[in-house]
Nucleic acid binder design. Structure first.
Lengths: 210, 210
DNA sequence: TAGATTGTTAATCGATTAACAATC
DNA sequence: TAGATTGTTAATCGATTAACAATC
């Protein structure tokens, strides 16, 4: 069975992304072959889980041998669609946006911040790292012109997040990474993932001794 | 049954943190009462799920009426231990660390960045927002002196993350929020949560049309 | 009382893991 | 061949959701 006929669990996708990051490291170190037991050592993901995850997408290894690191890297990259360059719109050129745009592992996985948007006149027309900052009202125009991104990162204050989501969806974005701690309303065909580090801290806080 | 006798699923804790953020908003708007069906409208979490989640910790509502927003806020805050101020060590005063320290919702949930650490001599001795930046080698000393934090945020490059984790664990930290895309090795009693936004992007990328 | 909504049980659904035949 | 390791099935485990008696 494959991706078309069977739907892939979200936890599997999350782990696939982990495997890829790990494999890119191994590949950089010129490791050639790896077994599922080795992967467990690197990622803490159960070896059976690893093999099961891969099985949603096909066959990747050789019994008795293991997996070719370069080949597995290539094939997972393709599955996650990071074998090609993926342009990303970044909305919000504040502290967080700036940190995200400068993140080293972005380019390694073929994500490219293609344009930055902000509503602060002091920033518009300047650059964030190497990327032009445009007025938020220009999203549609800029994206249509040449970028044609379908991925957007929302790194604006909570109060503005929904409007920004509406705007990026209108210009063709179908996947949003949202850093504002609010529930975004989007059409069903748009995928949203939320990152809320205060929520993460709260979960950790629960585990503290009294 | 309660927290002592039954273990709470991690997804429940994650949602508890969401509920709290939502309730803080509602409380700020002076909403007095809310039903589980209302909560579903705000958070997209199924109403039965919401009630089930709360049931791990006791009884919170009144049949026919719903939940008192101030009371529920107070009680969830207590469960997540954010009813008191929680000091947090931030390691890494780069772009990301800076963005995190300045995050507005931190203080609302009673987290306080109590000290910042970096290995860049140009930063040590200065401040990040209002907080002193110390040399990384001083973690134990600074934390012992007065802060006594048990929560730490690691926002340093991947290559340094494990050493930093070792250092904070040694000085009494039992919960770590890790932004470096590596698997940290820590003693069993230490809780780690990872935030990896490139991984999040990769999951989104999978969902893009070919 | 009648209507609303909780807390909890039981049913469903889905994800993880162990086991093992197939195969390199 | 013997040993190692895959891919997949079946068993286990855990989380979600529907249903409903209790109760405000």
């Amino acid at each position: 069975m494959n991706q078309q006929t069977q739907k892939v669990p979200v936890p599997t996708l999350e782990r696939m992304a982990r495997y890829l990051a790990c494999l890119l490291d191994l590949d950089a170190k010129s490791v050639e072959t790896i077994s599922s037991a080795d992967m467990e050592r690197y990622t803490d993901v159960n070896a059976a889980q690893f093999r099961k995850d891969l099985s949603y997408f096909g066959e990747f290894g050789r019994p008795g041998i293991g997996y070719s690191v370069p080949e597995l890297t290539r094939r997972i990259s393709k599955i996650l669609k990071v074998d090609r360059e993926q342009p990303v719109l970044l909305v919000g050129a504040g502290n967080l946006g700036s940190a995200l745009a400068g993140y080293p592992s972005l380019s390694r996985e073929h994500f490219r911040i293609a344009a930055v948007f902000d509503n602060n006149p002091a920033k518009i027309g300047h650059k964030l790292w190497d990327v032009d900052i445009y007025d938020i009202s220009k999203i549609a125009e800029v994206n249509a012109r040449s970028i044609d991104a379908r991925l957007a990162i929302i790194a604006v204050p909570s109060a503005a997040a929904q409007q920004v989501a509406d705007a990026v969806v209108k210009c063709g974005v179908t996947a949003i990474l949202n850093f504002a701690p609010v529930t975004l309303r989007v059409p069903r065909e748009v995928t949203v993932r939320n990152v809320d580090f205060v929520q993460e801290l709260a979960v950790l806080s629960f585990h503290l001794a009294p």
